[in-house]
Design a binder for these strands. Structure first.
Lengths: 123, 123
DNA sequence: TACCGTTATATTTTCAAAGATATAACGATT
DNA sequence: AATCGTTATATCTTTGAAAATATAACGGTA
């Protein structure tokens, strides 16, 4: 279309609309893509430290995320155990599974939005 | 609704979905909310330095944004003049106006999306 | 009790982004 | 030529976030 955005760009080939989403509570973000993946990997590995390693995230960062998440939920999403067989580990609660599922669907709807906007950009 | 996300949060009052959008070219973001506001203020003030000061952005940062934008557009969005009456100044081109208008509409559609998602969150 | 790998926490180090500062070039006006 | 406020650019400093490091606590198992 004439007068389109892509027409005024020097290199319109790789152009698209991108973005990121998160859930805010009291104005401060507390649940973005990072925590979701962390929860998924904690579920898969049974361990915060292993999940963090897989994501190339420091254990400290991972622990802070878990701690922050648990603090903001009515019930904890991760149950940690320090010590025990194999040194301990962590399991996720049904509430965590709910969060994961919700965020997955949210991401899908957002991806559709971005797709539509990217298409509009090229028209 | 039962099993909703808001039910598993400790403080569900201020909860909402938020996010940010930008345009990518070749995978690297080059046009987000900051540059738009800068362009608007350059148009209003006729000067990069005044626009930057209004936004409490360093002149350096503002100049870098302008420079980067100009480099990525087929035609420049800002025409700077160093020296001249009143020391110089900068004007924006019709292409810049197009970018501003596009981004404004994009923001509106995104706001609607976020609003819908925030509403869904509370259901 | 000694060991293990994990959770929990404090401290230090690194590093990149932002900011501050300084200086030159510019071109109309006087 | 001197002045003015702007653009243009280099360099130094600050600072804040991430990463790295270190250490203790934990609770099963052998």
């Amino acid at each position: 279309m004439a007068g389109s955005i892509k027409d005024i760009l020097k290199n319109p080939v790789g152009i698209k609309v991108n973005g990121s989403l998160w859930i805010e509570s009291d104005g401060q973000p507390f649940f973005g893509p990072g925590p979701v993946e962390l929860l998924e990997r904690i579920e898969a590995t049974g361990s915060i430290s292993m999940a963090a390693k897989e994501m190339k995230m420091s254990y400290k960062k991972a622990w802070e995320l878990v701690s922050q998440l648990n603090a903001q939920m009515a019930a904890p999403v991760v149950i940690p155990q320090a010590g025990g067989e194999k040194g301990g580990g962590s399991t996720i609660t049904p509430e965590a599974a709910k969060l994961i599922q919700y965020h997955r669907q949210l991401r899908e709807r957002f991806a559709a939005f971005l797709e539509a906007e990217s298409a509009r950009l090229k028209k």
